[in-house]
Amino acid sequence: MGAFSLIVLTIAAIAFSAGGILAGKLFTKGSRNAQKGQPYECGIPTQTSPWHQFNVGYYLFALLFLIFDVEMVFMYPWAVVVKKVGITALFEILIFIFILFMGFLYAHKKGALKWM
């Protein structure tokens, strides 16, 4: 690893991304119309502006997602060493998951995971 390989990598990265765009420009027949400016080529055409005010209930999903996201962070190093540590690691993570599963059951019981 030296300055030379860094330069080669940079040039290769630029060539790879810019090359695709350039090739697309060169070899395709350019046409512009209003249809192409739409976000999706197929499906239901958009009726109004997508910048609506969203229902506050969706925030709950984001919060719950974040909590399970953090849980994953703790399970990642566990998964790496579970074989090395052995049976105790299994029991430790079972306690960990059990406690969080209670939270999941609570959310399920309260209907927090129901899509509105």
Partner: peptide, 8 residues
């Protein structure tokens, strides 16, 4: 791996 061992 070190973090995991220390954590558990």
């Amino acid at each position: 791996s070190d973090i995991g061992v220390q954590m558990l």
